[in-house]
Design a binder for these strands. Sequence first.
DNA 1: TTGGAATCATTCAAGCTGTAAATATATTGG
DNA 2: CCAATATATTTACAGCTTGAATGATTCCAA
Lengths: 142, 142
Amino acid sequence: MTTPPDQQAIAERQLCGLVSGLAQRVAEHVRECAATLGLTASQATALREMTGPMTMRDLAERMSCEPSNTTFVVDKLEKQGLIERHPHPTDRRAKHLVLTAEGTALRERLLGLLAVGSPLSGLTPQEQGVLHGLLERALTSA
Amino acid sequence: MTTPPDQQAIAERQLCGLVSGLAQRVAEHVRECAATLGLTASQATALREMTGPMTMRDLAERMSCEPSNTTFVVDKLEKQGLIERHPHPTDRRAKHLVLTAEGTALRERLLGLLAVGSPLSGLTPQEQGVLHGLLERALTSA
DNA sequence: TTGGAATCATTCAAGCTGTAAATATATTGG
DNA sequence: CCAATATATTTACAGCTTGAATGATTCCAA
């Protein structure tokens, strides 16, 4: 019951399309929620990923983007008084990103918006668990 | 053994990050392969999704992008002699996209490149099958 | 049959995203 | 101490995406 190599390649291409499609849906949902709060999609993603103080590099990795892009996004958030660049406690090269009170409050509102109508809400928690495992495996094994 | 609602929301957010991360990896891989052939990532994605003749709208849906964007990409491919806009057999509004011989040949080369080192190759065919089912369910149930 | 609504494709403008290279500062290891 | 490396930033530029407006065509229902 093994799959022929060409069939396997076709299946893998379809999978690429599905992954991109779902990511697109997630991005759309984020953008809609962000617009409600006067944010761009990137700014909202940054806010979503700011689960605690972290460096620029950490945030870049969480956002799956380049550090130079993170600088741009954090600049915007800083001008809106939502985030602050503090000196890093141990590494003077790095910045310690911290949400302000306003930033934390807005993040909470954002998370509330993101929770309703998510593209992933069609899956049961069990299915989401399986999906989580598979995605993590794909990301770490590459 | 049910998960509390807030824990559930946290898990869903993590899942969003993973989906975006994997999509990013796929996009990078496509870009690298595309560069080898002198194509942009979008052009390569269009070529990959051209499994047969289809309309602009069909291609846009397969590429998960707006039709206006597809016009732009197809313009480029047409200028390179890889694709042609034929009149649609039954609907005079629509275009019937068809790959040229060169387009078909380049598509084959592209598929060969895409098949090696894919971000999804870390998963077994069985795991890919499960992933396929979950992604499809998430996309159609929304 | 005919008029209005909806669909397909295109164009245009504007902003966002992404890469890449260069720079300044700071850390680490030999 | 010095060379190599890491963090963050800046700049430039191409590409992507959205959104709205337009024209042609089709569909549907009165």
